[in-house]
């Protein structure tokens, strides 16, 4: 339906790109076969960020991951922001473009977090309209990522899996399955993460995310996991990932580590661990 460009993400491990790893990636990337960037960090006019990105894009397929589009927002998408995304995608011709099932703006203010939305017929229709608008503007298929959630809405009438599947069906978008988010949300909502994966439309998945989370608890002593991207992927998430690959086959898999960024050797080891699931034994 949409031209995805000549490049696609390989069914191999990638990492979220951080500037301190520029030289390491050029010298010896090891199992790292592709990179993901946050679109909003490359919206300047020039300088080091764009120069580094240009240099890296000659060696790696790049995934552009937006965090600020506010697809789940109540109001119309920001035309200036779509134009900036289009400018970046036209310049870079990335192998993939993805965004989140979340909202982050209201009344002209940007909140820099992936805020939750209730799953209803009304929000479904709005998200589909917004995705249509983005895919038309960019001329690319979008992958939509499942969120980490910490609370529930009384007005919700649909399961998240059904909500995402219906969005993909109506808009033709793909999905980005964040396995850590599945785990975090399942613990926080006291549901079963394996059932979630089993119900997920894996055929629509163009990319998988893995990352670390923090552990806390709510005021009633119930576990409360927080999607923090600041540590290693935990064993239960690796198990859930193995289950996902066993069911859906290999997918491009990203190690997401955005805070307390470790040295490259640590990231390489995480990427190698994902890669072991993707290479036929």
């Amino acid at each position: 339906m949409y031209d995805t460009g000549p490049r696609t993400l390989p069914h191999a491990a990638g990492i979220g790109y951080k500037a301190p790893h520029f030289a390491d990636l050029r010298a010896d990337p090891g199992p790292v076969k592709w990179l993901e960037i946050h679109a909003e960090n490359y919206m300047g006019d020039g300088g080091r960020p764009l120069a580094q990105l240009r240099a890296l894009s000659e060696h790696f397929p790049i995934s552009v991951h937006g965090v600020g589009l506010s697809i789940g927002g109540e109001t119309a998408l920001d035309a200036d922001h779509i134009a900036r995304l289009k400018h970046l995608c036209d310049w870079l011709n990335p192998a993939s473009f993805s965004e989140h099932l979340a909202w982050s703006t209201h009344g002209g203010a940007y909140f820099n977090d992936l805020l939750p939305l209730p799953y209803t017929d009304e929000t479904l229709a709005r998200v589909v309209t917004h995705i249509d608008q983005v895919q038309d503007a960019l001329g690319r298929r979008l992958l939509l990522e499942n969120p980490s959630t910490y609370l529930a809405f009384e007005e919700t009438t649909m399961q998240e899996v059904d909500f995402l599947a219906e969005i993909a069906r109506r808009s033709g978008c793909g999905l980005l399955l964040d396995v850590n988010n599945v785990f975090v949300s399942a613990v926080n909502q006291q549901t079963d993460p394996v059932s979630y994966i089993d119900a997920f439309p894996l055929d629509a998945v163009g990319e998988i995310h893995l990352g670390g989370h923090d552990e806390d608890e709510d005021e009633h002593g119930a576990p409360l996991l927080i999607d923090a991207h600041g540590s290693e992927v935990v064993d239960p998430v690796w198990s859930l990932y193995a289950h996902t690959i066993a069911r859906g086959g290999p997918k491009p898999t990203l190690i997401e580590w955005d805070n307390n960024v470790p040295d490259f050797a640590t990231l390489r080891a995480e990427a190698a661990r994902a890669d072991a699931h993707l290479v036929p034994a």
């Binding site: 910490y150 609370l151 809405f153 009633h220 119930a222 409360l224």
Partner: peptide
């Protein structure tokens, strides 16, 4: 209208977003 899995008010769960 924001709750925990048991249907109680979201409380600290909302604070996660506020802190983020």
């Amino acid at each position: 209208g924001l709750t925990d899995p048991a249907g109680r008010p979201a409380g600290r769960r909302f604070d996660v977003y506020r802190n983020n």
